[in-house]
């Protein structure tokens, strides 16, 4: 659901996703020098991270973790 993984093998530590995330979900681990998912519940599936990642390390499922009250059911 939502942002599911950042593949550590593929991540080159460019931080493009950290800057691109509109909800500040992704942070940079200074020790491992890789991007990490910190606040997955805040992810609204905009795909900025996956689309912008130069090494295809990120996978986002289109359904959020946090449900939103629908207009009608």
């Amino acid at each position: 659901m939502a942002i599911e993984r950042i593949d550590k093998e593929k991540c080159i530590g460019c931080q493009k996703c950290v800057d691109a995330c509109i909800m500040d979900v992704i942070r940079f681990d200074e020790t491992e020098k890789k991007a990490v998912i910190k606040y997955p519940k805040e992810c609204y599936c905009c795909y900025n991270c996956e689309v912008g990642c130069p090494s295809g390390a990120i996978y986002v499922d289109p359904r959020r973790l946090r449900p939103i009250t629908p207009a009608w059911s």
Partner: peptide, 26 residues
Amino acid sequence: EGPWLTMMDRAGIDIFHDRFEQYMSF
């Protein structure tokens, strides 16, 4: 805006053949 077709594919919906429910989000 978003890779909409990719999103629908991953959710298992074929927009060219599947009927799907929609609603309005305020």
